[in-house]
């Protein structure tokens, strides 16, 4: 189990944003991505998740090992918390959701329609989804948005348990999660340099 990124160049909307990016993660390791807004963290995570192709370079991920969580949680307002979570468990071929419900203290909210949850509660539901997928590699984009201090701690302990179980995590975040064991990568220095102006072909990338 491992995640290897080698000499990766990625583009957003036809413009290169990051280039020459390489890192490797093994079982039990976590990587926290940092960098200013708009530098391309989301694009990087989506590329790692296989949602978009890289301009060049390679992302090596074992098949069916990765789960992605973006800005939106994919929650259906008219379904209950239990139904939302149950669906994602089934979609990933699992059925047990009690562990995930407990880890994020969702059990008391179980029968409530997800539309009636607060923003922080929704986020907790979205993060609980990670647990029910049973996947080893977590790719998380700003997972702590709208979480309070207590919930951030919940999340940090969930990540810690995940790593202890041999999992991996790549997390883009601005706040300090208190994950001392995580490596930190500032993507700022990898910002793509502009191409030569008279490079006519380059204009089409």
């Amino acid at each position: 189990m491992g995640l290897t990124v080698s000499d990766l160049t990625i583009a957003r909307g036809g413009i290169r944003v990051l280039e020459g990016l390489s890192f490797a993660l093994g079982a039990g390791q976590a990587l926290v991505l940092r960098g200013p807004n708009g530098v391309g963290k989301t694009t990087l995570l989506r590329t790692i998740a296989g949602l978009q192709p890289p301009v060049s370079g390679r992302v090596k991920v074992p098949a069916d090992a990765l789960v992605y969580a973006g800005h939106a949680d994919g929650i259906k307002a008219t379904l209950t918390v239990r139904e939302n979570l149950g669906f994602w468990a089934q979609a990933f071929g699992n059925s047990d959701i009690t562990g995930a419900m407990e880890a994020f203290q969702l059990a008391p909210l179980g029968e409530r329609p997800a539309g009636a949850l607060s923003a922080g509660q929704k986020r907790r539901l979205g993060l609980a989804r990670l647990l029910v997928t049973g996947r080893k590699i977590w790719v998380l984009d700003e997972p702590t948005v709208s979480l309070d201090v207590e919930a951030v701690a919940m999340f940090a302990s969930a990540v810690r348990a995940h790593l202890a179980g041999g999992g991996l995590a790549v997390i883009a975040t601005h706040i300090d999660l208190g994950l001392s064991e995580a490596q930190v990568l500032d993507v700022g220095p990898f910002k793509a340099k502009p191409l030569e102006h008279d490079d006519f072909d380059g204009a089409f990338l």
Binding site: G13, G14, I15, V17, P194, F200, A203, F204
Partner: peptide, 14 residues
Amino acid sequence: ARRMRVLLARERMG
């Protein structure tokens, strides 16, 4: 036109 859009976008990024 395409090259123009790319140049403009690049300028905005820079």
